[in-house]
Design a protein around this nucleic acid. Sequence first.
DNA 1: TTTTTCATTTGAACGATGCTTAGATAGCAC
DNA 2: GTGCTATCTAAGCATCGTTCAAATGAAAAA
Lengths: 223, 223
Amino acid sequence: MIFTAPRYRFTVRPMREAAAPESRPYHHGDLRRALIDAARRLLEQEGPTALSLRAVAREAGVSPAAPYHHFKDKGELLDAVAHEGWEMLNQALTAARAKGANLHDKMAGLGVAYVLFARDNPSLYRVMYDGSRDKEDLPTQMRMKDDSAYCQVRDTLVEAGADPTDEIALELATTAAWCAAHGLAEMASFKSFDHLKDAVGGEEAFFHGVFEHMKVFAKVQPD
Amino acid sequence: MIFTAPRYRFTVRPMREAAAPESRPYHHGDLRRALIDAARRLLEQEGPTALSLRAVAREAGVSPAAPYHHFKDKGELLDAVAHEGWEMLNQALTAARAKGANLHDKMAGLGVAYVLFARDNPSLYRVMYDGSRDKEDLPTQMRMKDDSAYCQVRDTLVEAGADPTDEIALELATTAAWCAAHGLAEMASFKSFDHLKDAVGGEEAFFHGVFEHMKVFAKVQPD
DNA sequence: TTTTTCATTTGAACGATGCTTAGATAGCAC
DNA sequence: GTGCTATCTAAGCATCGTTCAAATGAAAAA
């Protein structure tokens, strides 16, 4: 497996506020960290289109060229931001894990948690998938680590009764769940569905309703 | 319903080749059309990142300011390109419609057709959804017109036996199918799934397999 | 035909972006 | 203190989206 050690110890920490500019010495101390925080701040406040490398440098109070000593290019900064996003998603799914009695309820619960994360962090979610699309893959972090969101979905399936010896079926089911959640996460922000949300009694009910109706793809119709 | 008449008669026509630049008179004749074609050509050949307004103008053999007499800004050009994409998707689903005996087979067939469209027109598909995300909605064209992809999914559900009087369930099921297909369309290009594709015997089998396993969300497990 | 009109197209410009290079600064080992 | 070296700045390049005045020429008006 090709995976070089990360250059810095990774934890998702709360974003620091921007330091008062006049207090900064010539050498910043931890500009890398400050740049990631500045990027996330801009992302939250101004949205993904406002996130230019120069704007991030401005927000961090350094010159436009400074970031290039910590990131090869803009993409590498965005990768670092996305990395934190994936870690946050892992944590969100961990928190929501394993509620519900049967397979359906467990999976729907996990799916709703996923969609809620995307709803609450729309810009971050977008950066996460834009980066993946560019690389034509999800980050290694998502597929290999034990607490990765992908592995949690798979483990939940097993807990809920899926046959762990049929590896292919298990991976297909995990992929199916992931696709359903991601698809809904992207649709959920579209205004066309507002009337449906109202009709079923709110956003979360809408999410549950959509997952419920994934049954149209089931070979034998339940109910 | 808010929907102004389109400014030009719409059909999805094959892209014209770039005209020999020296043969072009000062007034182009149909620069709007030529710009859309140039944009789609660039999109196919160079990918979405290469698609700048200036590059499109260059490709069409015209000055950088010329497009602004036919499109308010870059976004409006991309909207026009996306519009053609949605029409193509409609046609693709129409062609694939209603094959299969039961609900599961019909829906899986439609879903696979959707995913194949995204696989075969990756850059166009991206432009279609980027535009939708910016506007926070799918184009009106997708939801209202009778032959729209969305309506076709819904009609297929009814044909396959869904209760047409339960409007909410019908819309939820249509949405679920759409989410599943869009989710898989985005995942399908990720390399992590290559081994799964091989394991199940090819890409289309993989698509069918994933749709099949959407059953993990069904309340009663079939099989 | 000649003249007028006016949408179309051009060229030049503005501010902003990603990125590179050369040089200034200062923390740190000696 | 003296260097060494990572860090940061200043300036510059090519490109981008967009605007605006001026040029063009097709088509209507005379």
